[in-house]
Design a protein around this nucleic acid. Structure first.
Lengths: 254, 254
DNA sequence: ATTGACACTCACGTCGCGTGATACGCTAGG
DNA sequence: CCTAGCGTATCACGCGACGTGAGTGTCAAT
């Protein structure tokens, strides 16, 4: 069976230009060329092309493919195993990147919340400067620089969106303060019921997974802004809500 | 604090050329330029650069970065979330690719084993042709085309390497045949002890995980070459060893 | 003979720089 | 003051794997 370049392209799902290119670099030469210069391919080339596309898909460069298709099975196995390693490494790197993004999102969102809480709790602008100082004197990591950068811009949410959240948050924090005074543990059913409400509220900002919720609890504990914010409700609020959140995350989130 | 271009490059770990480029595309302009044309940067640019590098690392293009750095926190959050999706997708794709490679390796290695078994069991060259036909008339997937391609080349292993493997394999298969005759089940302790030896033998070819071992059991059941090979030992060998392997994989491998 | 689909060969554009070539500026030592 | 030796500037080509034309030739059918 003979294929013109277009037929081969359609059969294999690549462009004609790609076949031209593979011819030029010596990766896939046509079976023969007509006197008019047309390229004609046959079964053998189709099979070879399929191999090439397989190797291309797993991420080998054309240079590597040129080498690999001339190898025998034994060497192909070696090459594939080696490349599998490469893929696994880049997979791990990507996992780390995603975690990094999560962390940055957490910071950004935490800051975003703080900023908007300020709007309604009347923290003065000194707080902003203090916050920025804290960040600048931290590790100076990229994500922190990112947080720092954002100067005072007007929030996208108006009062209508923020008020219900603020009220619910206020109610939750007050309820928690009462629980502390009553001597309840962070793990008690009553407290965990409140945490459910808390988790639902946070869910209005972003999707809450176990990791994210635990991360947020750390944010609460570590960030002085949150400390000051929670101290208003109860002096033991921070460790209490931290424990309650971690317990809730462990038990109900995944 | 003022930085010359070299100092900024060293501080941030990028090349001077990169800074030139970022200036050219408008991503990071110097704080000001001297009358001599020299670029001078300040703290603000350092922080901005750190942001840029953060976004670059997570895989945003420069065009996207140019847009994102002018956004406020709210939009950055959106962008990050969107890009996190992108990363997760490519992560999944990579997972699939790795599995594909595993499958291909399995086929290649299976074929490799068959070919070399043939060397010592005296299968004639007709078998090879038959095998190729089987592959060609199969699904014609890329990995199968890959298997097909490899024509008769001399194996890299010599007699010295193959003989012990062949002997151990032979002993295992004979032992299994006896177990079948004795009426033992594939799950029985005695059989599973033999499977342990089998698994160790396979381990000499490549690392055996649960998936790989189960895959190999399928290879045994599906490939006519293996069928003929095992039929020599016992007519019920194929289903028997298949069950035994899957049971072993379930119980002892991960 | 004409038409329209298909083929060919240049050749430039993409993205994010690396790597020169060539020329000018700055500072220090002789 | 001259020069050596850096630092800096601009200009320009190169990579990899094609996409996307432009301009021209060829084939099959009407």
């Amino acid at each position: 069976m003979e294929y013109t370049i277009k037929k081969l392209a359609q059969l294999s799902g690549v462009s004609i230009r790609t076949l031209h290119w593979y011819d030029e670099v010596g990766l896939l030469k046509p079976a023969y060329c007509g006197t008019n210069g047309y390229r004609y391919y046959q079964e053998e080339q189709l099979l070879l092309l399929q191999q090439i596309l397989f190797f291309r898909e797993i991420g080998l460069s054309l240079k590597e493919i040129i080498q690999v298709i001339t190898q025998d099975d034994f060497d192909k196995i070696k090459t594939l195993q080696a490349h599998k390693q490469v893929l696994e490494n880049s997979l791990n790197k990507k996992l780390v990147l995603i975690k990094t993004i999560d962390k940055t999102l957490l910071h950004l969102q935490g800051k975003y919340i703080i900023k908007n809480e300020e709007l309604y709790h009347g923290f003065d602008s000194e707080r902003q400067e203090e916050y920025e100082k804290y960040l600048v004197h931290g590790q100076g990591s990229a994500s922190e620089a990112l947080i720092f950068e954002s100067k005072k811009r007007t929030a996208k949410w108006g009062k209508d969106e923020w008020d219900p959240v603020k009220n619910e948050g206020d109610a939750i924090h007050k309820a928690l303060a009462k629980c502390i005074d009553k001597g309840l543990t962070p793990e008690s059913n009553e407290v965990q019921e409140i945490m459910k409400r808390h988790c639902q509220m946070i869910n209005r900002f972003y999707e809450v997974s176990k990791d994210v919720y635990v991360g947020l609890s750390q944010l609460y504990v570590e960030h002085p802004d949150f400390k000051k914010f929670f101290d208003v409700y109860h002096k033991d609020m921070i460790p209490f809500i931290g424990k309650a959140m971690r317990f809730y995350a462990d038990k109900y989130l995944k």
